[in-house]
Amino acid sequence: MELRAEIQIKSMIKALTDVVLPAVDPVNQLAVEQTRLVIGMLSLMAKQLPIQFQFDRDELNRLLGCAEALLADRAAEPGYANALQQLATTHQAGTRVLELSVIDPATLVQAIHRLRAATSDVVAAVPGTSDPALVGRVERTVMEAAKEQLLRDRSLLLPQGWELDPNAVPSIETLLAPLPESP
């Protein structure tokens, strides 16, 4: 899916900066201020999104370190001991999450891009073979894969309103493979 947040945010900032803000009535201070704030917020999102995963993983790692220090310093009072026990349980779960969180979403997208490109190269190369049956098989395989993927692409974009029969497209939530259970 090429229509991603990165390019959406960039184009929204340009529209607001180049077209909308200069057209806002300068007398309406509230409108001017809020337009500037929206531009600022979108710019912040553009900065945050690519590193959000890394940021969160970094925080989790340091929180685990902090929890380990707290767990090492025990006391006998029941209230405090109970709280520490809760912390130990969440520390264990958090450690497992950190162990599983090794792939940055950007790496996932990069892997998708590379596989799409390599698949395209196969499709582009197959007419050069002397086996028409192979051409048919390769193209059918790619067509089948495209059918499933395009259904998800279209479902994700349903709010845009392009579909002639939107009811014929299942919701994106029902189409996506479930994520592995959280620890």
Binding site: R116, S120, V123, A146
Partner: peptide, 15 residues
């Protein structure tokens, strides 16, 4: 940007 293998299938078919 992002490759679309289906477009390559279409190009083959059209040709």
């Amino acid at each position: 940007g992002e490759e679309i293998p289906l477009l390559r299938v279409a190009s083959n078919w059209l040709r």
